[in-house]
C-alpha cells in the first residue's frame, strides 16, 4: 500500500499522472473527442473510468476536462452558473491538485470552462472550450429507455417520437412543457440533449464561437458541437421555441436580460431574484 499522496514539487499530486487519468485513458478519450467533433451531436461510447468523485457529480465532464487540459490552460468551473457552489469548488480544487492548472472565476479569462446546468452569460469566444457535465446523454430516454433502440432511431434520423411529444404538449397545454434539457437538432442531423441547462440558454449554443464538449461518465458517452455549428431548438412554425426566464430584475446588478435564481426570503411569499451567473453579476456591479 502506498503512502498518502502528497503534492509534488511540480504542483500536481504525487503518485498520480498529470490530470489524474493515465495516458492510455486520455488517448482513448481523445480519440473519442475527435470523432465526436467530426460527427456533431452523435454520442460516441467511451471506456469511462471510475473517478474519485461519484457518478452524477460530473465524472464525464471531469474526464473530458482531464483529457483536454494542459499546463497553459486557465480553468473555470461552474455549477448552476456559480463558481462558489460546493460541487464547483470541489471540482476546481480537484484540478488544481491533480493538474496544478491556474483557475479563475472570470469567464473571459478562462480557456476551459466546465459547467453543470448553465452556459455563462458572457458570450464565449473562439479558442475557448466549454465542457458540459451530462447526466443522461440520450435526448429520447424519457420516450424510449432502451439504448439499443434509441441508437437505431439516431441511425435512421427518426425523431418522430420527440415531435409527437412536443405536438401533444402543445395540443394539451398550449405550449411545450419542457423547460430545461430542451432537445436540439445539431447541424440538421442529430437530435441532441443540451444537458440540463435551462431552455433560456439554448440559443447561446447556436453557432457558438467556442468548442462545446459533452461528457456523460455513468452513461459512458461523449459528444460535441464544433464552433459555428447550427444548433436549433425543436419547435413548430406556428409554435416557435420560446425560452423563459423569471420576469424580474436581479436584486444585485439590476439585469433584466440574465437568467435568475429565485430566493425565498421569508415564509410570507417574500422573494428576490439574483443572477445565476455570479461572475457576470459581479462584473456588472464592478462596472457601475
Amino acid at each position: 500500500m502506498s503512502a498518502a499522496p502528497e503534492v509534488a514539487s511540480g504542483g500536481t499530486l504525487a503518485g498520480y499522472n498529470f490530470a489524474y487519468l493515465d495516458e492510455d485513458t486520455k488517448r482513448m478519450i481523445r480519440r473519442a473527442l475527435l470523432k465526436a467533433v467530426a460527427v456533431p451531436g452523435h454520442q460516441v461510447p467511451f471506456g469511462s473510468r471510475e473517478m474519485p468523485l461519484p457518478y452524477g457529480w460530473g465524472t464525464g465532464g471531469i474526464q473530458v476536462t482531464a483529457s483536454v487540459i494542459g499546463p497553459d490552460d486557465t480553468l473555470k468551473v461552474i455549477d448552476q452558473g456559480a463558481d462558489d457552489t460546493t460541487n464547483a469548488v470541489s471540482i476546481r480544487r480537484f484540478f488544481a491538485r491533480v493538474a496544478g492548472v491556474a483557475t479563475t472565476e472570470r469567464t473571459a479569462d478562462a480557456t476551459v470552462i466546465q459547467t453543470r446546468h448553465r452556459i455563462p452569460e458572457t458570450p464565449l469566444r473562439e479558442g475557448q472550450i466549454l465542457v458540459y457535465q451530462v447526466p443522461m446523454p440520450e435526448p429520447l430516454f424519457r420516450l424510449e429507455p432502451r439504448v439499443a433502440e434509441t441508437r437505431r432511431l439516431h441511425a435512421l434520423g427518426d425523431y418522430g417520437l420527440m415531435h409527437v411529444k412536443l405536438y401533444e404538449d402543445i395540443a394539451r397545454r398550449g405550449e411545450v412543457e419542457i423547460s430545461y434539457n430542451y432537445p436540439v437538432m445539431v447541424n440538421g442531423r442529430y437530435l441532441m440533449s443540451p444537458s440540463p441547462i435551462p431552455a433560456f440558454d439554448n440559443p447561446k449554443m447556436d453557432r457558438m464561437p467556442a468548442l462545446q464538449l459533452f461528457g456523460a461518465g455513468r452513461e459512458k458517452r461523449i459528444y460535441a458541437v464544433p464552433p459555428y455549428t447550427s444548433v436549433r431548438s425543436l419547435d413548430f412554425e406556428d409554435h416557435p421555441f420560446r425560452p423563459g426566464r423569471a420576469d424580474a430584475s436581479c436584486a444585485l446588478c439590476g439585469s433584466r436580460e440574465t437568467y435568475l435564481d429565485e430566493v425565498v426570503t421569508d415564509d410570507r411569499g417574500g422573494r428576490r431574484f439574483l443572477c445565476s451567473d455570479t461572475d457576470y453579476c459581479a462584473e456588472r456591479r464592478a462596472d457601475r
Binding site: 457518478y55 457529480w57 465524472t59 453543470r116 446546468h117 447526466p135 430545461y180 441547462i197 435551462p198 423563459g244
Partner: peptide, 21 residues
Amino acid sequence: TGFVEHLKLPHYVDFQSELEK
C-alpha cells in the same frame, strides 16, 4: 448510488425553469 444521490446536488436552475413554466 451516484445517480440517485446526485439528486441532492443543487438543481435550482432547472427547478426555476420549471417554476416559470
